[in-house]
Design a binder for these strands. Structure first.
Lengths: 391, 391
DNA sequence: CCTTAGCACTCGAGACAAATGAGTGCTAAG
DNA sequence: CTTAGCACTCATTTGTCTCGAGTGCTAAGG
């Protein structure tokens, strides 16, 4: 009983654990043995289930809020559940059609598409969703234009491989006219085009700019602003949707908890940083995308056989999230691709007791739809983007 | 007693009402007669105060949650308080310096400045704050540039009088090259430059574009996108800050109320629309700005004299806000100016029981600092902006 | 006539105890 | 190994009681 057999639980324990997590996700109440046998057609007595539950508890999968209450899943229990037990169904045709519809709309901007994707996820799942703009550090600079707005002010437009565009208003010396500005920007562009963003330094920009053959006094401020604009292209933005939905769930009946959660979510840039630091599965997309559908739903028997599927999403549960104030939450995240090496994250934040299966199926579908749309954007308008981007 | 004398309350009633609102703002507890005389040095017995309170109640300024509880201010009571009773102090030099500091930072963009202003307001007051991007409908188009990003995609940059810049990625026909695009955009710019945004229609754009002398098939999509971009320049954005702070106040201990509030705040565009539809004081800014300080704090005697000061801020209390879910809140809003006729709003949302005086002094100062900064932006870089903008 | 002391009354909040019931662990029999 | 049975635990609910802040009213006093 204390054996903690690493190779996993026997079938009955698995069944019971699944049933418990399912119930708890649904009711948010500690689940007791009697109720469990009633609700699920387990051919067992409550006493037997009690014994099994006791085992599961000493194995670390369950917890008891107090004696004489039912059990609730521990983080480990959820982990087992999402890794091996839950049943992920495909979306119904109606659901997927609805999502496709909402995403298909007008958009020519990655950000617009991301906003929508986030909105879809939030309304589909009923939890908080987020989308992080792509990380472009590894991407190549394709264009850098500077547009005179009025004397002393210019718009710097940074175009990256894969058609990502960022811009920024900057101050420039008053003495600079449109022509000089154009000379500078094309000098910089020529010098830097094709370089990775992360390899561009103030020095490289300065070197490039010097070809413009203009007095340093004029040049310096401009090239500095250009440099900053390039660097800022990699600033991450987060689109949050449906934050207030969390307040509907009983775990947030406590206002303090709700506040902690909201504060955590808004703590500047923390979430973006956290999500981007370990961006889950690297090289399975091809296969994932090739599949007509993500047909890797786990079925009852399948799981027993112990097949280890690589999953295109990542789930972090409770303690696994090392952010203050999010210890009662879970993240389900995945990546999307713009072009070849530019990736970003989308995800759902919910209570630990979230409906993982539904979230996973939705997020996988949104990921797919998003990638499709982004690819379409590329193929139509950015062909040289993907080529140029060193494979 | 039932006389409801329109001309206002006698001095003692005013004093008592002020004391009650002050106390209630501080404690969030219904205030009783005895406590009131204790806390404020009223030279009255509690019985007298009780009588006065009873009067104030029948006049509609106070409410009783239930018999045997103290009184709380009604919406009318708050109204009287903010209009005639509260004492607005100037900020301490330290506070104003701190605000100036936080706003002075780097910025060349209106939006950046607005974000910061909103952040300052939130952290200074402890409530939720918001900033709405300026309404530019009445503003004049100064430039319209189209920048080729890659075949089939372009960036449309719209520059308005007063140096407001908006841009947008659009699709264009693949066949269009950079040169043609430049011709189109300069044709449109020439044709529309100087027009008010609100006067620009698809027809005027088309007429302007036709001067480019390019085949219609190429032209049409581009001019349509140009048109949309121009129209979208007037889309309002809202920057919210400190939403979660509201959850600290006892009126939002109830999660449902908190949720309603959060939902209301995020309901798309509602707040922006609401704020912008009646943008308070129109023509007193000159004077306000001229004053060394907003020295119009209401002092005890002054108010009795019934001077009607025009106030550069607007307060909406409870029921006066016609937005679902905001009935327990108050808005304190004001306008800022970019150039001559471009205005936007900033404001604070708090519980009805908010510290109006502190909020007002902060918001006035932020407004002033914001206007200064924006003016500086204008004067330095956008001189022709204010000239061109028809006075 | 206004103010104030006094008093009876109201009513929510908090404390406490008892009842309820869902759930457990253990044991002994099948 | 399973299961019926039983004693036990403990959070939650319900009811009762008290406490106290607050009110309105009345009658006496300046």
């Amino acid at each position: 009983m204390e054996a903690l057999n690493r190779q996993g639980l026997d079938e009955r324990k698995r069944q019971i654990l699944r049933a418990i997590v399912d119930d708890y996700i649904e009711t948010a109440e500690p689940v007791g043995s009697r109720n469990l046998v009633d609700r699920h057609a387990l051919n067992l007595s409550s006493a037997t289930v009690r014994n099994e539950m006791s085992d599961l508890e000493s194995l670390g999968y369950l917890e008891q809020p107090h004696t004489s209450a039912g059990r609730i899943p521990s983080d480990l229990g959820y982990r087992e559940y999402v890794d091996h037990l839950m049943r992920v169904d495909e979306l119904t045709p109606e659901e997927s059609a609805a999502i496709r519809d909402r995403l298909r709309d007008s958009f020519d901007e990655v950000t617009e598409l991301l906003r929508k994707a986030s909105g879809v996820l939030a309304s589909q799942t009923g939890y908080t969703s987020l989308a992080v703009t792509p990380r472009v550090r590894q991407s190549h600079l394709r264009q850098l234009k500077m547009l005179m707005i009025e004397p002393g002010r210019a718009l710097v437009v940074v175009v990256l491989a894969a058609g990502v565009v960022k811009d920024r208003l900057v101050r420039i010396p008053d003495a600079l006219d449109a022509d000089m500005l154009a000379r500078i920007s094309s000098a910089i562009e020529e010098g830097l085009s094709g370089m990775r963003l992360e390899d561009i330094t103030l020095v490289t920009v300065a070197t490039a700019a010097s070809r413009a053959r203009l007095p340093e006094t004029l040049l310096n401020q401009v090239l500095y602003e250009a440099y900053v604009s390039i660097k800022q292209a990699d600033n991450l933005e987060v689109y949050l949707e449906g934050q207030h939905r969390m307040l509907e769930y009983p775990e947030f009946r406590d206002v303090d908890r709700a506040r902690t959660y909201l504060e955590a979510i808004h703590r500047d840039g923390i979430i973006a940083g956290y999500l981007s630091e370990d961006s889950c599965p690297e090289r399975d997309e091809e296969e994932d995308e090739a599949d007509p559908r993500f047909a890797k739903t786990v079925d009852d028997q399948g799981t027993t056989a112990g097949i280890r599927r690589r999953c295109p999403y990542m789930i972090r549960i409770g303690q696994e999230i090392s952010l203050d104030g999010m210890r009662d939450c879970s993240f389900v995240t995945t990546t999307y691709k713009v072009g070849d090496r530019i990736v970003g994250n989308i995800g759902v934040i919910g209570p630990k007791r979230m409906e993982y299966a539904r979230v996973v199926s939705n997020i996988q579908f949104v990921r797919k739809a998003l990638n499709e749309n982004l690819r379409r954007l590329m193929v139509r308008y950015g062909k040289q983007g993907t080529e140029e981007d060193g494979r």
